[in-house]
Design a protein around this nucleic acid. Sequence first.
DNA 1: CAGAATCCCGTGCGATACTG
DNA 2: CAGTATCGCACGGGATTCTG
Lengths: 117, 117
Amino acid sequence: MPETELVVAAPHRELLDQVLNKWSLAILNELCERPCRFNDLRRAIPAVTQKSLTATLRRLERNGIVERVVVSSRPVAVEYRITPLGKTLRHPVDVLLEWAAAHMPAIEQARARFDEA
Amino acid sequence: MPETELVVAAPHRELLDQVLNKWSLAILNELCERPCRFNDLRRAIPAVTQKSLTATLRRLERNGIVERVVVSSRPVAVEYRITPLGKTLRHPVDVLLEWAAAHMPAIEQARARFDEA
DNA sequence: CAGAATCCCGTGCGATACTG
DNA sequence: CAGTATCGCACGGGATTCTG
């Protein structure tokens, strides 16, 4: 039934955009290991800017993937944790990354062939 | 080993951007069913503009996911087909879509909770 | 420490018009 | 039929500065 798949495709695309954008995977990866403070994440993912990190965390929080916990005030301490829902994302993402790892060589060959033409 | 995962993350992200952008999934979905002409795809995916369709097909072609076959000239006829490499993408994508379908309700609840605050 | 505010740029994507 | 060309905008994301 290709029709239902297509109908279903639109909202799913939007969801994937929320959850699979540039820094989400790196963040997910960290938070699956352990809860992290904001600056822990910055250190773990040196390439991310503070703005993008904030934005991505907010997006993930909004979608119920991560949880923002204020640990203490004075000085402010915040901890980000993966939620149970977030953990369910791990498997699909891993499958995807394994695919990427497995076929990267073939893909680079394809690119090389395409680019010379 | 979180380190290898992170090192590996960057090139993979780039690959996922190439292969999982807005119209890729719909196109993949169609071409997995059957080879399609350009306008077949336009009809099958009414919301896509011609420009985006062309761009996405080129990207997928460059990455070896789809194949562009000129069937005849006068009048020009072109057929797009999924490649063997492209077929290997099906499973990871399906896993992802199944995840999306399964957890969509929970995610919409999370959004509703987040948005009211 | 954990951001918010501001500025700016690239580009993904849509809309429209044209072509071999 | 299968595109190319052009315009234009919204937005993701980087760099920098400031703050409770």
